[in-house]
Computed example of a mutant assay.
Amino acid sequence: MNKRDLTLEQLLVLQSEMRHAEKSLALAYFMLLGGHLGVHRFYLKRYVSGTIQLILFLAAAFSYFTAAAFSGVDEEWNAPAIIFLVIMLLTGLALFIWIIVDLFIMPRMVREWNEAREAEIIRKLTGPRQS
């Protein structure tokens, strides 16, 4: 069933329910500022990719501090420090590229979320009438 087929009462219920269920593009972009933590993806209920972004961030941070610890006080770069530095650069670069991509696909992700919630609410509103 389409949104245009709803009665006035159903449209009012739909609007009221959407107010609670829909996601804001502006808020999602604001959360992208903390994108290295995957916050914007958790907001859009994309838990797997949000967790992966968080793990990439933690791996980069851990590698950075471990490389700094291995370099020691005299700041000589030894093999373990260089390995952790490379890991930090790779995970950081992967996360950076992912955040830049998210910058451009964020409107689609929010639109898909909102459209799915709207369709779900319409199904609930029209379910008894269709059977």
Rank of each mutant, 00 (worst) to 15 (best):
L11N: 14
L12I: 10
V13I: 10
V13H: 09
L14F: 02
E17G: 09
R19T: 13
R19G: 07
R19L: 11
H20L: 14
E22P: 03
S24N: 09
S24C: 04
A28I: 03
Y29H: 11
F30Y: 10
F30K: 13
M31T: 01
M31D: 01
G34E: 06
G34H: 08
G35D: 04
G35N: 09
G35M: 04
G38I: 01
V39R: 01
V39G: 02
H40V: 00
H40K: 02
H40E: 02
F42D: 01
Y43P: 02
L44A: 05
K45Q: 06
G50I: 01
G50A: 05
T51V: 03
I52K: 00
L54K: 00
L54R: 03
I55T: 03
L56A: 05
L58Y: 02
A59P: 00
A61P: 00
A61T: 00
F62A: 06
F65P: 02
F65N: 05
T66V: 06
T66N: 01
T66S: 03
T66Y: 03
A67K: 06
A67Q: 04
A68S: 03
S71Q: 12
G72P: 05
V73W: 08
V73H: 07
E75W: 04
W77Y: 03
W77K: 12
W77T: 08
N78H: 04
P80V: 05
P80I: 07
P80R: 09
A81L: 06
I82N: 01
I83K: 08
F84M: 05
L85E: 10
L85Y: 10
M88G: 07
M88D: 08
M88W: 04
L89H: 10
L89W: 12
L89V: 13
T91G: 07
G92K: 13
L95M: 12
F96W: 13
I97Q: 13
I97S: 13
I99Y: 05
I99R: 08
I99L: 05
F104C: 04
P107C: 14
R108S: 15
M109W: 11
M109P: 05
M109Y: 13
V110S: 14
V110R: 11
R111G: 10
E112K: 15
W113V: 04
N114C: 09
E115M: 10
R117H: 13
R117L: 00
E118V: 11
A119N: 13
K124V: 03
L125E: 12
